[in-house]
Computed example of a mutant assay.
Amino acid sequence: MFATGQGRKTDATDAHSIALVGTRMAGLRPVVNDKQLALLRILVDRRRSLGEDHTRMVSQLHQLLLELIPGGAKKSLSAAQAKALLATVRPRDGVGKTRRRVAAELIGDLERVYRRAKEADKELKELVASTGTTLKDLHGIGPSGAARLLVEVGDITRFPNRAHFASWNGTAPIDASSGEQVRHRLSRAGNRQINRVLHIMATVQLRSPTEGRAYFDRKKTSGKTSMEAMRALKRRLSDIVYRQMIDDATAATATGPGGHRETTTDSSVTSSHPHAGSSEKSLPGPATPQPRTTLAAAS
């Protein structure tokens, strides 16, 4: 199609390409309609939407309070705090009164969003717990992060090893070496939602005296910049998440029905904190035919 000079991407061309892959490629995995994951996706998307609404409303409220109160309000502002501040304002002109009324409406909207977010968190927490995942045991991953990992990753065994998983989620560094200078840069590719989960996980670990914080500090001491140290930390956390999900899949296979397979993973990560190692490899090379990650047989 492209050799003829047409170069057009159409639905018919896409369908033809997919048909070729489906009929000629070996080892393809069938699509499974997992109703539990579908439900989890609806809830986690809803929770994200509520968070975005909250951020937007707080931003609008800050703008109004800045015009109503000298100096405005503090950055981390709750609905109750905003209501208390607004109670001290008594504008006399029509513009000021309108600002105060709109601010009061925004505060009411914030209270409703907060209640809905709290209910969504509770429902999400219960549904994540029902999946049997242990992702929440990892420092820095909550119900929303665990749910996002489950719905985006699906079957973790589709990744042959941790390097492929890191390449998929965008934490594998890209080789940017030139001449004798050997360096890597941050990848902007990959699944950005999972990359965000790992970024939040790294940020949470940096706030406490965790091994993640110690790992970050060691990278800084070795001469890396803060951005490079954060990239290295996220790459290590990707390995940890991969190992945890493989362990969960193995446990589920051992206790559930169906056939069982052996496991061949190359991850050496055994805890929720990063350790020094050789995990900072860049993107894996060209794909070669190889068996997918399999699960351990039940004893």
Rank of each mutant, 00 (worst) to 15 (best):
H139Q: 14
T131Y: 11
P143R: 02
P209W: 13
A189V: 08
L237A: 04
G142Q: 06
G145C: 05
S226E: 14
L198D: 00
I240C: 04
G154Q: 07
D175R: 14
I246K: 02
I200F: 00
H164E: 09
K224E: 00
P143I: 06
L198I: 04
A163W: 09
S130K: 13
W168Y: 12
A232T: 10
M201A: 04
I141P: 00
S187F: 13
T133I: 10
T134S: 15
F159Q: 10
L138M: 10
K220M: 11
N191L: 03
M230W: 11
D217C: 03
E152P: 05
I141E: 00
A147L: 11
G145S: 02
I246M: 11
S167F: 15
A229S: 12
K234F: 03
M227W: 11
R231H: 09
I240V: 10
R231Q: 13
N161P: 04
R192T: 14
T157M: 03
K220N: 03
G223R: 12
S130G: 13
S187C: 15
A229K: 10
M230P: 02
A176R: 10
G140E: 00
S187K: 15
D155F: 00
E152F: 05
V151S: 07
I200Q: 00
A232M: 11
R243E: 05
P173R: 11
L135W: 08
S208Q: 10
P160G: 06
A214R: 15
G140Q: 00
S238D: 12
R235F: 08
A172D: 09
L135E: 05
K224M: 01
A214F: 03
L135S: 07
E152Y: 07
R218H: 05
A166Q: 07
L233V: 03
S167D: 09
A189H: 12
K136G: 02
R183W: 15
L150H: 05
I200S: 01
V151R: 05
L138S: 02
G190E: 06
D239W: 03
A166T: 02
L206Y: 06
R188I: 12
N195D: 06
